[in-house]
């Protein structure tokens, strides 16, 4: 069992991810945005990994995310998985490479299978 932090602004997607994670005996805390996430982390709650949904809007989507996330994930030594619905004008491989460069454990594109999500979490927790 892992203690997980989900950052997802779409309630239906959040609900379905929580459904999978809880059915696999993980505990999930849900933040609707990066701002809420920062507050939860600063309050001192401890997690094994984070799952972050980002909209990779153009070249700077991931950069903007990384500025926000750097502080939180590095300060709190928190491994993170990026999930996304795509990036305009970029191949998925290029977006994945960039996510890698920012230190994401894995990058998942919706819709993804339950196994993909669970194995990414295993990797984050054990890594």
């Amino acid at each position: 069992m892992a203690e997980l932090l989900l950052i997802e602004d779409d309630p239906a997607v959040a609900e379905s991810i929580i459904f999978v994670l809880e059915n696999n005996n993980h505990r999930v805390t849900h933040a609707v945005n990066l701002d809420r996430m920062r507050k939860i982390l600063e309050a001192g709650q401890k997690f094994d990994a984070a799952i972050v949904d980002i909209w990779l809007d153009g070249e700077d989507g991931l950069s903007a995310f990384s500025k926000e996330a750097d502080h939180a994930f590095i300060t709190h030594k928190l491994p993170f998985i990026v999930i996304s619905g795509g990036a305009p004008g970029k191949t998925l491989e290029a977006a994945t490479a960039r996510a890698d460069a920012y230190g994401a454990v894995a990058m998942l594109y919706k819709p993804f299978s339950d196994e993909e999500l669970l194995s990414a979490i295993d990797k984050a927790v054990s890594g």
Binding site: I17, V20, G86, P88, Y109, K110, S113
Partner: peptide, 25 residues
């Protein structure tokens, strides 16, 4: 067109993801 397609893909991804989760369950 590229931006429009990417936006549409993103929206459909969000909509379809829960469908997959619940259908598999």
């Amino acid at each position: 067109l590229n931006r429009f397609a990417a936006g549409l893909a993103h929206e459909l991804g969000n909509i379809l993801h829960p469908v997959g989760v619940y259908a598999r369950a």
